[in-house]
Design a protein around this nucleic acid. Structure first.
Length: 383
DNA sequence: GAGTTTGAAACT
DNA sequence: CAGTTTCAAACTC
């Protein structure tokens, strides 16, 4: 029996691993999720997939000398902080989603050719990316260095033509699929059991439910958006319609404060518009593209995208001048968003996006009419 | 189930 | 930061 039978299985204060930690995941990540067999780590190192996923160990675990439980919550949190001091993203989702999905840290496979579950990318059912240092990559979900991104884009475009519905893609049900299926999400409700208020953030999107470490911005910097032109990019984001689970929501909190928001996003061109729906997750800047760490949440017309784009801000500041694009998975508006030059941006919106609450799957009509909500922010900052 | 292989995490 | 060690999961038999 498990040695850590006492606890609930949520650490509560950290970001749970939205997308379950494959560690060396089994063929079914959901099956392996929340279950470990740690012998020496006391389940308080990232070796432990429960710990790594932000969960306490539970009855299904076979760990020994487990500290990762409710009883030792304070110690666990302290250890977590120490780990986060080394890697602030240690407890963030392991897979990020932009036009597809990829393993955030990439893999370093030498022998497995990325075609076994030893490979963290493969285990997540995502393709390898330029972030990987694998050798002889043969990942069936996407080979490093291939035009997997382009292929993914093709897939996106294919889906735009109505040839494939989102639900099919979301299911990722065919393991033989040529295209990478989306990451597997842990829908287990217990991950939010003690933290259900994570959903109930206020209308401005302020939420400090979790203590997710975020890159700290420079508060002295003026709005990073001043010199950005916003263009609609008629490319669908195949995943962003996926309903968010409570786990997603919980793990995608950030702890930006109102004061920080004001400092960061004081640009009246942006702040004053109820244009953007908030996306929960921080943005990860990655070369020339800022990518979403997780799936955006459509919640309220009063929530501004920049409001919680804490990480994004910093990344923008560091972006190569003139080269930066940001892909924003969706927009909605009762007002036209401003292009920054006095003109309004033309929007084609999913009709459901006008409402509150979770976004339903897109309609066929939406697909067919290319009412996509992905935008690019071109970095036009002067040199 | 035991032993081996593997790659991520931790350590030096 | 690179190399080494430790660790737990994946895998094989």
């Amino acid at each position: 029996m498990a040695s850590c039978e006492d606890s609930g299985n949520n650490m509560n204060e950290g970001a749970s691993d939205t997308i379950s930690n494959p560690s060396h995941g089994t063929s079914s990540m959901n099956d392996s999720n929340g279950k470990c067999n740690c012998m020496k780590s006391q389940c308080v190192k990232l070796y432990c997939q429960c710990f790594s996923a932000g969960n306490f160990c539970n009855d299904n675990c076979s760990c020994k000398n487990c500290l990762n439980n409710e009883v030792n919550k304070d110690s666990v949190n302290q250890i977590k902080k120490e780990i986060q001091s080394r890697d602030p993203r240690a407890f963030e989702p392991k897979v990020i989603v932009d036009q597809g999905a990829r393993n955030r840290k990439g893999c370093i496979c030498r022998k497995s050719e990325c075609k076994k579950n030893y490979c963290s990318c493969f285990a997540f059912k995502v393709g390898c990316s330029r972030h990987c240092q694998c050798q002889n990559c043969m990942n069936e979900y996407g080979v490093k260095g291939s035009s997997s991104g382009a292929k993914e884009q093709e897939r996106v475009n294919d889906s735009n033509n109505g040839s494939k519905n989102v639900e099919t893609m979301d299911n990722g049900s065919s393991s033989q699929s040529h295209h990478p299926p989306p990451p597997v999400y842990d829908n287990s409700p217990n991950q939010l059991s003690e933290n259900s208020n994570a959903r109930a953030d206020d209308e401005l999107g302020n939420s400090n439910v979790n203590n997710i470490p975020m890159p700290m911005p420079s508060n002295q910097v003026a709005s990073p958006y001043h010199n950005f032109a916003v263009q609609q990019n008629h490319v669908a984001a195949p995943y962003y319609y996926r309903p968010l689970t409570p786990v997603h929501i919980q793990s995608s909190r950030n702890n930006i404060t109102e004061q920080q928001s004001t400092n960061l996003f004081g640009d009246p061109d942006w702040q004053g518009q109820s244009t953007f729906l908030r996306t929960n997750p921080p943005f990860y800047y990655d070369n020339n593209v800022a990518e979403l760490s997780s799936i955006p949440r459509i919640q309220s017309s009063h929530q501004y995208l920049p409001h919680q784009s804490h990480g994004f801000h910093q990344q923008v500041e560091e972006a190569p001048l003139g080269a930066m694009t940001l892909q924003l998975p969706f927009l909605r508006s009762s007002q036209q968003p401003n292009n920054g030059d006095g003109t309004n941006m033309q929007l084609n919106l999913h009709p459901h996006l006008h409402g509150h609450g979770p976004s339903p799957p897109p309609t066929a009509d939406y697909e067919e009419n290319h009412h996509h909500g992905m935008f690019l922010l071109q970095n036009n900052r002067p040199q």
